[in-house]
Computed example of a mutant assay.
Amino acid sequence: MAAQNRQNTVSFSGNALKWIAMVTMFIDHSAVVLIENRFLGGQTAAMDYALALSQPGPWWKLDMVMRLIGRIAFPIFCFLLVEGFVHTRSVKDYAMRLAILACVSEIPFDLAIFGVPFYWDYQNVAFTLLIGLGAMTAWKKFEGKAVFQVLSAAGFCLAAMIVDCDYGAFGVFLIVLLYALRENRRWQAIFGALSVLWENSAPLAFILIYFYNGQRGKSHGKYLFYAFYPLHLLILAGIAKIIG
C-alpha cells in the first residue's frame, strides 16, 4: 500500500520540468513575436488585463492568455539552473556551455524580438542564467561569510543591470534565492513565489517546482535546451518575416 501511495503522488522529474519550461517559453515567445509585434503594434496585454479585455477582437485576449502561460517558464529554468549547479561535475564547463548559448542565441533573439540582427540595448536570457551561475559560485565560495555573500550577490545583480539582460537583476536575485534555500523545498517554493509576484502568473511555477522529485528522468536530454532556445527563436523570426 505504501509503495502504491508513493506511485500515486504527484511529482515531476527534472526533464519533465524542462519540457514544461520549454513549451511555456515557446508559447510566450510566440505571443510576443507573432501577436504583439505583428498585430498589436508592439503592445503587450500580459501586464494589463483591463486593457486586453476592453479591446475588440481576439488578438488581445489570446496574447494575454499566452503570456500568462509563458510566465511559468523563467522560474523553472532558474530552479533547474540551481539543480544543475549543485550536481555538475565542472562549473567551468557549465559556464562555458551557457556562455556559448548566450552568444549563439543573441542574433536569433534580436531577430525574433526586435526584428533586427543586432540590438545592443537588451540581451537574451542565457546571459541572465550565466550571471546567475557566477552569483551562485561566489555565494558558495563565501559560505559562512554572510556579508560577503550578500555583497557578491548584489554585485552580480548590478552586472545584470549593466548588461541589461532579460529579467535583469530580478532574475539573478531569484537564482541566488533559490540556491540559498535549496535545502528546504517548502521555503524555496514560498519565497520563490513571493519574489516573482510582479510577474503575474509566474508564482504558479513553484507549485510544479515544489513537487520536483529530485530525479533527472528517463531521457536526460542534456543538450536539448541548448539547441531549442536559438532554434525556436529563429523559427519564430522566420514566420514573422513571412507574415510581414
Rank of each mutant, 00 (worst) to 15 (best):
M64Q: 04
F77I: 09
I69K: 00
T44M: 01
C78M: 04
Y94K: 07
C78N: 10
T44D: 02
W59R: 03
V91E: 12
H87W: 03
Y49Q: 08
L68N: 12
I69P: 01
D93G: 10
M64R: 05
M96N: 08
L53I: 05
G70N: 04
S54V: 01
Y49M: 14
A73H: 12
H87C: 09
L81T: 14
I76H: 07
M96V: 15
T44L: 03
D93C: 07
I72T: 11
V65C: 05
D63I: 01
A73E: 07
P56H: 12
A46W: 06
T88P: 10
L51D: 01
V82F: 00
A46Y: 10
F74R: 02
G57K: 12
L81A: 11
V65K: 02
H87A: 13
I72D: 03
W60N: 06
Q55P: 02
Q55K: 14
W60T: 07
R71C: 06
V65N: 00
T88A: 09
Q55S: 14
F79W: 10
W60I: 02
G70Y: 11
A95L: 15
M64C: 06
G70R: 05
P75A: 05
A73W: 09
L53M: 15
K61V: 07
A46H: 03
L80H: 05
L81R: 10
I69C: 14
A46K: 08
L51P: 00
S90Q: 12
I72E: 04
V86W: 01
G84S: 11
K92A: 15
G57W: 12
Y94A: 07
L80S: 08
L81M: 13
M96D: 11
L68K: 05
F85M: 08
K61N: 11
M66R: 00
V65P: 01
L51R: 09
H87V: 08
K92I: 14
L62E: 00
S54N: 14
M66G: 00
D48Q: 09
Y94W: 09
P75I: 02
F77D: 06
W59H: 13
L80C: 05
A52R: 02
A73Q: 09
M47E: 04
F79K: 14
E83W: 00
D63R: 00
R71S: 03
G70I: 08
G70F: 11
L80I: 12
F85R: 12
L80T: 07
W59Y: 15
P75N: 10
T44I: 01
S54E: 07
R89A: 14
F85A: 12
C78V: 08
I72Y: 02
M47D: 07
F77N: 06
G70E: 06
F85T: 08
R67M: 11
A50M: 04
Y49K: 13
